[in-house]
């Protein structure tokens, strides 16, 4: 790793530590990292949108021979002008007098979105799921393929659990009948099914959050700490460990300062205010 890359890696390590410092309490380092992230993301997204959306789709049409057409004036696709005009019409929202114009592109956008979404979403999320729930129970492999396997999602038992679970969970949201007797029992079982689902989501979420922390540990170890002490690196010089220990020093100074401030507050609280 050359020194310039290591400089950026050290900055990445600083931002990692600054972000994790929020677990202790809000502080200027965290605020800096947070604002930098928000600004950087917005800036990066704007540039990506400019180069991947507006330039190739609106401004220029690039040809195989390397030449480009300015789409609005001399293009094989002059109809690109129509969405461009619709896009410009959206900006009238900033004017009180002309903001009604923006309703036209908005209406078209919502219409296209709904038209594309409704049949496809209905098919993928409702019809297919209903069809999967209504399949014949696999009695041959009721307890799993190749012996008893509770985790086999294709076994007859799993199909039965999914069928009963879905029915009971739906019953919980059926409010036209009082939840008493059989309906009440089914609704109660439905709650349990929902809770198990939320529990599974929570478990996966815990894994996800720990994964992020582990990844940062791997980054700090593999890319920062090891690079700072990699004497086999042909570019290695005193600057590498200097940067490393400088950042460590900042962390240590911050921790010591917090301990001192905390102890000071504790002493003031125990002795009481001086009148």
């Amino acid at each position: 790793m050359d020194f310039a890359t290591f400089l950026w890696t050290t900055f990445g390590a600083f931002l990692t530590l600054a972000t994790f410092s929020f677990l202790y309490k809000d502080n200027p380092f965290y605020k800096f990292a947070e604002h930098l992230f928000v600004g950087l993301s917005a800036g990066y997204f704007t540039i990506i949108l400019w180069h991947n959306g507006l330039i190739p789709k609106l401004m220029f049409q690039r040809l195989d021979d390397g030449s480009s057409y300015f789409l609005w004036l001399d293009s094989s696709r002059p109809w690109y002008l129509i969405p461009a005009l619709l896009g410009i019409m959206m900006w009238t929202r900033f004017s009180k007098k002309y903001s009604w114009i923006s309703r036209w592109p908005l209406a078209m956008y919502i219409g296209i979105g709904a038209g594309a979404a409704v049949p496809l979403e209905m098919r993928a999320r409702v019809n297919e799921q209903l069809s999967a729930m209504m399949r014949d129970i696999d009695w041959t492999y009721f307890f799993g393929h190749g012996g008893f396997n509770f985790l086999d999602t294709t076994s007859g038992l799993s199909q039965l659990i999914v069928f009963i679970g879905a029915l009971c969970a739906l019953m919980y949201f059926f409010f036209s009948t009082p939840h008493t007797g059989l309906v009440g029992g089914m609704a109660r079982f439905g709650i349990w099914i929902l809770m198990i689902g939320f529990g599974a989501s929570f478990g996966f979420t815990v894994m996800a959050r720990i994964s992020l922390f582990i990844n940062r540990m791997q980054f700090l170890d593999q890319q920062w700490i090891q690079s700072a002490h990699d004497t086999t690196n042909p570019n290695y010089h005193w600057g590498y460990p200097l940067l490393f220990y400088l950042l460590i020093l900042v962390v240590v100074v911050y921790i010591v300062r917090e301990i001192v401030v905390h102890a000071g507050k504790k002493n003031t609280a125990s002795t009481g205010p001086v009148s």
Binding site: Q129, A132, T153, S201
Partner: peptide
């Protein structure tokens, strides 16, 4: 991980 559980129905 956060969204894994919600996609299992599509596997079934």
């Amino acid at each position: 991980g956060v969204s894994t559980a919600q996609y299992y129905p599509y596997l079934g």
